[in-house]
Design a protein around this nucleic acid. Structure first.
Length: 320
DNA sequence: CCTATTTGACCTCT
DNA sequence: AGAGGTCAAATAGG
């Protein structure tokens, strides 16, 4: 059943391969649904465990997404997405971490482009209630003061991908501090006014940006925590998050009815995919409004949509 | 000893 | 080629 995985050499091949892999994923998802149904009635005679099936399903998504090379619309907000500039072999892709990550980072990161940003200017550095860790400082052209780069302290332990940049302006006589936020906090800590700031600002955007996530990786028992350096730098794109309209409605009161493929949460690189949230801590807890079966249905529907999408293989195919 | 910051190098994008 | 963003080794501080 398992097909050999390789990076295809042309677009048509990509699409064909992606369909095959997604088809496998759908089969696994169907098997899982049958298994879950049969377990309700006491029949537990299956060759693969539920965990195995979930792993295979996730594997299908990962591989198909890799084949399709992450559409740019998804990569736009990804600041540290591992990028394979020169065709990795399948073993390298499957082995997890970028093989050159530790010493040689060439080709492993993608620069942030035009991601959503919220900017605040204040006479003093903004105290937003979040724990930030400085990771860089840079002199900016034609700027008197350097720009300081911060990431959320919980980036590694919780996969929170929020970052901010702080730069002192040159205004005389009272220079201001311009703080620019990228991404949204997904960590469980310190839900303060700043989060409200984010939510408020998000409400002003188009409805497609409103989202809550279902993090498959964190829901899968076989996956270990994302606090490992190598995992953190792995080119994994498997932990994309699907967003349900139920979640959206419950959380933001949105009328959006889309299910979106969002971001690789937990990998640094994790960074963002849609204009919505990266991931959400609420996604790691059992949900009362969307059963696992429902979520499974959505996964299968997503694959079906993809496969029915003909040559149009945009990620919109995942929208329900 | 552990964690946070500094800073030069590396990477992507324009 | 240059600017901007990030990494990670070295360093500082508790």
């Amino acid at each position: 059943m398992e097909k050999a995985f390789y990076l295809p050499e042309n677009v048509a091949g990509d699409q064909m391969r992606a369909r095959e892999v997604l088809s496998d994923g759908r089969e696994f998802a169907d098997q899982l649904r049958v298994m879950l149904n049969s377990q309700r009635f006491g029949d537990v005679d299956h060759t693969l465990s539920a965990g195995d099936l979930v792993t295979k399903i996730l594997d299908s998504f990962e591989k198909s997404l890799l084949i399709l090379q992450l559409p740019s619309s998804l990569a736009d907000e990804v600041s540290q997405v591992p990028v394979n500039s020169g065709g990795l072999k399948s073993e390298e892709l499957d082995s997890g971490p970028c093989p050159k990550m530790v010493k040689d980072r060439r080709g492993c990161f993608k620069r942030r482009r035009t991601s959503e940003a919220d900017t605040k200017v204040s006479p003093t550095p903004v105290e937003d209630g979040h724990a930030w860790r400085k990771y860089g400082q840079k002199s900016i052209l034609n700027a008197k003061h350097p720009r300081h780069y911060y990431r959320c302290t919980h980036k590694f332990e919780q996969g929170c991908l929020a970052t901010k940049q702080v730069q002192k302006t040159e205004e005389d006589p009272s220079p201001m501090y311009r703080t620019t936020y990228y991404g949204r906090h997904t960590c469980k800590h310190n839900y303060t006014d700043h989060n409200q700031f984010y939510l408020d600002s998000m409400d002003q955007r188009d409805s497609s940006s409103k989202s809550i996530l279902l993090n498959f990786r964190q829901n899968t028992p076989n996956f270990s925590p994302l606090n490992d350096t190598y995992k953190d730098h792995s080119p994994s794109i498997g932990n994309y998050n699907f967003v349900t309209s139920d979640h959206i409605l419950n959380t933001f009161g949105s009328s959006s009815t889309k299910t979106e493929l969002l971001s690789p949460a937990g990998s640094d690189h994790g960074d963002v995919i849609s204009s919505g949230m990266y991931s959400c801590s609420t996604s790691t807890t059992p949900d009362q409004t969307t059963s696992f079966d429902d979520q499974l249905d959505m996964m299968v529907a997503g694959v079906v949509n993809f496969e029915d999408g003909g040559d149009d293989l945009a990620m919109d195919s995942f929208l329900l």
